[in-house]
Computed example of a mutant assay.
Amino acid sequence: MSNSLVSIQIIPKTENGEDVIPYVDAAIESIDAAGVKYEVHPLETTMEGELSELLTVIEKMNRKMEELGSPSVISQVKVLYKPDSITMSDLTEKYR
């Protein structure tokens, strides 16, 4: 059962002004490797799961940016925490 929805927009700084899309792709690969449910949207990615697990995924994403050579990273994060249960479908089903 998931108790959280976490949306993240990761904005890595690049050394020489390179395109950040390959970095963002690598960040999304970190989410995929974690095995959590997620949806990619144009300006952010939303994950569904247990809050502690999702925060660990965010940490891994930031470390991945460091491994790729990014000297700094801005991570804009939104969290919806509902202890008894929350899913992406709970919030979006009426729009589908």
Rank of each mutant, 00 (worst) to 15 (best):
S89K: 14
E29C: 06
K82Q: 10
V79K: 12
Y95L: 15
V6G: 12
L43T: 11
K78F: 11
A26V: 04
A34S: 15
T45M: 08
I11K: 05
T87A: 12
D32V: 08
T56K: 02
Y95Q: 13
E15T: 05
I11F: 03
D32H: 09
K82N: 13
I86G: 13
K60I: 07
A26K: 11
K37C: 03
N3Q: 04
E48C: 09
D19G: 03
E29L: 10
K82T: 11
S4H: 03
K94N: 15
P71N: 11
L54T: 04
E18D: 14
S89R: 12
I21P: 06
L91G: 11
G49Q: 07
K78T: 14
S30C: 15
E59A: 09
S7A: 14
L54I: 04
E44A: 11
P12L: 02
V77W: 05
S30H: 00
R96G: 13
D25F: 02
A26S: 11
Y23N: 03
A33T: 11
G17H: 06
I28W: 03
E15P: 06
S52W: 01
G17D: 15
A34I: 08
E48F: 00
P42W: 04
K13R: 07
S72K: 13
N16V: 05
L68V: 06
Y38P: 07
P12R: 00
M1Q: 04
D32S: 08
T87M: 11
M65E: 04
T92H: 07
D19E: 14
E53I: 01
S72R: 14
E18T: 10
V40C: 03
T46P: 05
P12I: 02
L80F: 06
M88Q: 15
S30I: 01
D84N: 14
E66R: 09
T14A: 06
L51K: 05
S70E: 07
E59T: 09
L43W: 10
I58V: 15
I28M: 08
T56Q: 02
K82I: 13
L91Y: 02
S85V: 03
M1W: 01
A34C: 06
I10F: 00
T46H: 09
E15I: 13
G69R: 02
E18K: 13
T46F: 10
N62Y: 00
S2T: 07
R63F: 00
P83R: 10
N62S: 03
L80C: 11
L80N: 13
K60Q: 12
V79Y: 13
S52D: 15
L54K: 01
E59D: 09
M1T: 10
I8A: 11
R63C: 02
L54W: 00
P22H: 05
Y81K: 10
G35F: 00
H41D: 10
S2A: 15
M65F: 01
K60L: 12
I11E: 07
M88H: 03
L43K: 09
A26W: 01
A33G: 04
E93C: 05
E48N: 07
G17M: 09
P22Y: 06
D90M: 07
R63L: 14
I31E: 04
D84W: 03
K82S: 09
T56R: 02
M61Q: 13
K60C: 09
K64Q: 12
